[in-house]
Nucleic acid binder design. Structure first.
Lengths: 240, 240
DNA sequence: GAGCATTTGTCCGTATGTATT
DNA sequence: CAATACATACGGACAAATGCT
């Protein structure tokens, strides 16, 4: 019995592609089926196994490609910046504003930001890419007082962290973070160009002024699990 | 066209089983195929979709059953105890010692524990269950000085946190945690009774004496993603 | 824009293997 | 040993997305 054919094939393919640079095109289902002398079902199961392990990414009509997950390190010791974190991990980040409006602060947000419900707050919705892959989407609630002209600022810089530092004059630091893995709902799946139900991280985070401890912004962000490996570091010591 | 049949079926089934108590037997593939008027392939794909989303668990020869994931909250504000965390979540925890030996401290562990390489350290390997499901496995490195008689102590109490408190006389607190989701390797899959490649959490954590900050133990633990929903929390403020 | 080849996505029917009860 | 139900696999078919002509 040993194991199933598709598992052996998956293991063989995994070893083959291990050293290939990300984005390399690999054999299609039919080619694999022919090479290993199996039907398309077994070949397909093998490639799907690799996909579940985030080793390849598949695009209909195009093919199967080697993939890599970029580490996204969330730590209280480092600035809460998508751009900077991704760049340090060796990827090319990009962020696009979907909407940026001033709204009355909802009750839940007000509680977290420790401000009066109904006072104006920026509601910034953005989508972030890593190497041209839509990898993150979510909402950032920024205290209006911290950055008076956010809509203008986000047109100049892609980094909210940078904006708050330069325009707002505060250094944001992660105060608390909560991360879990969920199945993508319709809306999230749509924004991230994945199938509904695919695994995504949900990261909620409060950033405060490093100096005064005053709340600056609240972020709620979904992150594609197949593109990003979220690593959360809690605590003060260096993990090495 | 709208979407695939199996997705519609999966969505319909998900809604049906949402309120069922965990462990309830649900329709098999053939029953679903008959009910929705599709082939077995589509029915199977639908159930597999539910399985990927951790809504059901399947056992060959037995059937498909509703599942629940227990929340495992890892936070710097709460004691690093499997037993206590799981119990609070309403599950029945159990921990079994696989091995407990005194070994010379490896270099990597020594660096994390800030001790001399080669000094004696307890190497404790344990497997933890939630409701009789093997859900976690890993190694704990405990400074020998903190608990002189660990092999005896682990026979009395299942909670390492409790042992260190009572026998060692220190209150352990999470100093830092590093968690990510990986595909299970052979060894881990074997210990957790899952297929190799299935999604598992890998959690590495350093616990220190709450009072003095001195390192007490280093843990490396794999956790079944289909059984446990890991939630990471970092920071001082109340998340509400 | 239309047409075509490629490749993955979905689905069918059928068959056999294997674990549990 | 038999019944049940999931696991794997085959071959075939059409749909849908992509890139190119």
């Amino acid at each position: 019995m040993a194991s199933a054919k598709y598992r052996d094939i998956a293991a063989a393919l995994a070893a083959e592609i291990a050293d290939l640079p990300p984005g390399t095109k690999v054999d299609g289902e039919l080619a694999i089926a022919a090479r290993f002398g199996v039907g398309r079902a077994a070949a397909r199961a093998a490639v799907q196994e690799l996909e579940r392990q985030f080793l390849v990414r598949r695009v209909r009509g195009l093919g199967t490609f080697t993939s890599r997950r970029v580490d996204y390190l969330i730590s209280s010791r480092r600035p809460p910046s998508w751009s900077q974190t991704l760049r340090e991990a060796g990827a090319t980040p990009r962020t696009v504003v979907r909407s940026c409006t001033s709204v009355p602060m909802p009750a839940e947000v007000a509680r977290k930001l420790r401000m009066q419900e109904g006072t104006p707050v920026w509601r910034l919705q953005r989508r972030s890419f890593t190497d041209d892959l839509p990898a993150s989407w979510g909402t950032e609630w920024v205290a209006a007082a911290a950055v008076p002209e956010l809509p203008t600022a986000v047109r100049v810089s892609e980094s909210l962290d940078h904006i708050i530092r330069t325009v707002g004059g505060v250094v944001p630091a992660r105060s608390w973070v909560r991360a879990s893995m969920e199945a993508a709902c319709e809306e999230v799946a749509d924004e991230l160009a994945i199938d509904p139900g695919a695994p995504v991280w949900f990261v909620k985070s409060l950033n405060t002024d490093e100096a005064t401890g005053a709340p600056v912004c609240l972020t709620e962000r979904w992150i594609r699990a197949d593109a990003i490996r979220v690593v959360l570091e809690a605590g003060e010591d260096a993990p090495g």
